[in-house]
Simulated scan of single mutants.
Amino acid sequence: MYRIALIASQYLTAHAEHLRELLSALDRPDVALYCDHAFQAELAEEFHLTPRFAGALPSDMSPLDVDFVLSLGGDGTFLRAARRVFASEIPVLGLNMGRLGFLTDMGIEEALPLLPRLFSGEYTTERRMLLSVDVDGVHQGEILNDVALLKRETGSMIAIRTLLGEGDHLANYECDGLIVSTPSGSTAYSLSAYGPLMMPQCRNMLLTPIAPHSLTMRPLVLPEDLAVEMTVTARNNTFLLVLDGQTKIFPTGVKVRVTKSPNQLRVLHLRPYCFADTLRRKLLWGAPVRE
């Protein structure tokens, strides 16, 4: 019996037919489906679909006990699904039903004909690096993409004192914020702040300042085993800490420590995966400009 959890976006109206086909393909005697109550209600009310579900997923962020997780939506939905399995070996398959979709590299229409490979074992899994975030010694969570320290006031900068390793002073960043990202996250917030791209197979961290008040403060690639410790000074004595899109408010003066997590995320692919192909399709990487 294959136990499969469906974690879906709220914005799937344009994919009604694809949803119908997907649920039909998963309607097998050897498959037990799980989803949360909200998605089950949406399927019935908006799409008039009433698939057989073996049970409901817990409403909190407790770990899942399934064989596969299917993420239906964009990268935000994929990150939400990934948070449920960070401490396990459960692979996540991202079916892009959103917009750009770097993490969900395969569109739902491409995946449907390949879905039988999930049950025949004709798939591959890729391990993605995670980061762990503590504030004053209290664990805040793990991230697949990035953690960002951001200012709350629009009219002033913040200062971020940054130490590496066992206390080696790197810099005092005067900026709008500072991003610490994984290789997976190099195509996310860091990219919009002119950070470099890294292949997902890399085992590094990327430190990218946002609008630094210095031409000499450039993005910096760090080895995976090097801890990063940051302390914020701000005019209003608070700042934002954003973990894969989840925002928290902290007072200035606390110590934010980012280290490599002992856990990894298993990303499932139904066909051979090539990051270079994703760059060409999603970012038009190297597209000819003279044609």
Rank of each mutant, 00 (worst) to 15 (best):
T13F: 15
T13A: 14
H15M: 00
H15R: 04
H15D: 01
A16T: 08
A16F: 02
E17M: 10
E17A: 02
H18P: 10
L19N: 02
L19E: 03
L19I: 03
L19A: 11
R20S: 04
E21F: 03
L22G: 05
L23S: 08
L23C: 05
L23Q: 05
L23G: 04
S24T: 07
A25I: 05
A25H: 04
L26M: 14
L26R: 15
D27H: 08
D27E: 02
D27K: 11
D27G: 09
R28M: 12
R28S: 08
P29M: 12
P29C: 10
P29V: 08
P29D: 12
D30Y: 13
D30N: 15
V31M: 03
V31F: 06
A32G: 14
A32T: 14
A32C: 14
A32H: 15
L33T: 11
L33E: 02
L33K: 00
Y34G: 13
Y34F: 14
D36S: 06
D36W: 06
D36L: 11
D36I: 05
H37L: 06
H37R: 02
H37G: 03
H37E: 09
A38K: 11
A38V: 12
F39S: 07
Q40I: 06
Q40R: 01
Q40T: 13
A41G: 00
A41F: 11
A41L: 09
E42V: 08
E42M: 09
E42A: 09
L43A: 04
L43G: 02
L43E: 00
L43W: 01
A44H: 10
E45Q: 13
E45P: 13
E46K: 13
F47P: 02
H48F: 07
H48W: 00
H48T: 09
H48A: 07
H48P: 04
L49P: 01
T50I: 03
T50G: 10
P51L: 09
R52L: 04
F53D: 05
F53A: 01
F53Q: 07
A54N: 14
G55R: 12
A56M: 09
A56E: 13
A56N: 13
A56D: 14
L57A: 10
L57Y: 14
L57P: 14
S59R: 04
D60F: 09
D60M: 10
D60E: 12
D60L: 06
D60Y: 08
D60P: 03
M61H: 15
M61W: 14
S62T: 08
S62F: 04
P63S: 03
P63N: 08
L64T: 15
L64K: 11
V66E: 01
V66A: 06
V66P: 02
D67W: 04
V69L: 11
V69Q: 08
V69A: 03
L70Y: 10
L70H: 10
S71P: 00
S71D: 03
L72E: 11
L72P: 01
L72I: 03
